[in-house]
Nucleic acid binder design. Structure first.
Lengths: 246, 246
DNA sequence: GCAAAAGTGTTGTCCTTACACCCATGC
DNA sequence: GCATGGGTGTAAGGACAACACTTTTGC
């Protein structure tokens, strides 16, 4: 409608020759990536945070984020930030969504794109402690800098949904894990309790765990068997589920 | 790492006082929204397209898109574009994801955020035919301008997943519809065939369709009953599904 | 009366749930 | 020997898949 008023009849549209000029006419905004990196330890879901280095957010935590560089692919930027902050490269990283409220950043408008990742806390020594980088318990996370609490909530919801449909959880566990650890992980992330027998049966029937014939060590009770996840088999047999369920 | 080089030891981090200055130092990119608007007609899924007005893409189709204005909320921009192009305001519109390949736009780097929407073709007279605005069959959609084919594919995958978990499909149908129309819609979107009896049973057991005691008119065969979707009941009884399935 | 689609029920299978007891280990 | 969690089986109920015939309408 708006268009109709400014250009009433336009049967033969003028083609724009100079795309560069066109793009120059667009408003430009600063663009950042924020990474919500989840870990799991002591039966608690944790998230990797730093102290904000903005004075207005003094003492508040924020996600690991950085600007996107000129001509940098979004995914590449996310991996770069991840690597710079944690040293890890062999991790899964997924775009969740963009956040663009005009006042989300005190320095003016900044669009951010949230990425989500999961990593095994014990595989990663936090060598770079700048800005108080640390694993923060998700449950006790209250106020954050910027709109990062909202971003964390989105990413957590994304994770909860995702872990039910994809074997993401194994990225949070040691390579070898017991069924109890696996169940604790699901219970922590989904915020529910599960029947132990049914849980075991479920994974047994999927036939995606490799019994490596080892036992837990140093537990103050009967040790459980250790398993590895059979990523190879999973990749081959990814199921395409179709149904209607709402 | 980059950070370490420029500020090697930083045990007492300097707090940044001027957030505005900080943001000014960020690279800035043009930002657009592209809307993948799906409709359903003649048992085919369609998508609303225009001819690109860039000479390099002469004759190719593109999604409805526009730049995001200064200080415009992303969702607002999507709704604005939708309204400008179709006149519709009372529609559902969801962010799918951002696309940011550096060379996706011939005029230089432009980030775009894809939104997805569904609307009933017959509820909307395309009054603005600028740039050959039209409903294009999704199946016959081949090449497009920019990376819009990739965006369409993403949005279509999003839609396929989404429609199985949320009652989105009803936005594509007339307010009153027959079970046959509903089934055709699911079959077209999911690209599968469904057993008619089981499909009917499924929706009967959900008890979310209101039998409005009307029949189809002007069909060359036995007319079917017409139903409305009970949005109110659905909202009250949204089910929270928890399970592990991969 | 014929073509075309509407409408309807049953059965078997599989998946999920609920639930209770014995076993191995550390202390 | 006791505390702690590991490991197992079964029965019932619910959801889904497969499948065929009768009914109603337009022509």
């Amino acid at each position: 409608m708006t268009k109709k008023q400014t250009a009433p009849v336009l049967h033969e549209p003028h083609l724009i020759k100079d795309a560069v000029e066109l793009v120059k006419s667009y408003p430009k905004v600063p663009l950042t990536i924020d990474c919500a990196i989840f870990g799991f330890e002591e039966n608690k879901l944790k998230i990797l945070l730093i102290k904000s280095d903005l004075e207005v957010f003094e003492g508040k935590f924020s996600l690991l984020g950085d600007m996107v560089r000129d001509n940098e692919e979004l995914d590449d930027a996310a991996y770069r930030i991840m690597k710079e902050r944690t040293g890890m490269t062999d991790v899964f990283l997924d775009q969740v969504r963009a956040f663009g409220h005009p006042n989300r950043h005190p320095g003016g408008r900044v669009i951010t794109i949230a990425y989500c990742s999961l990593l095994n806390i014990n595989h990663h020594e936090l060598s770079i402690h700048d800005n108080d980088l640390h694993w923060h318990s998700l449950a006790s996370l209250k106020e954050m800098a910027f709109d990062h609490k909202e971003i964390v909530d989105s990413c957590y919801a994304w994770l909860q949904k995702r872990i039910q449909e994809h074997p993401l959880g194994f990225n949070l566990l040691p390579e070898k894990f017991s069924l109890r650890e696996l169940q604790n992980l699901y219970e922590a992330i989904l915020g529910i309790t599960l029947d132990r027998r049914n849980f075991r049966k479920k994974f047994a029937s999927m036939d995606l765990l490799i019994d490596i014939d080892e036992m837990e060590q140093d537990v103050p009770h009967r040790p459980g068997k250790l398993y590895k996840f059979n990523f190879e088999k999973y990749e081959k047999s990814k199921r395409k589920w179709v149904g209607i369920d709402f």
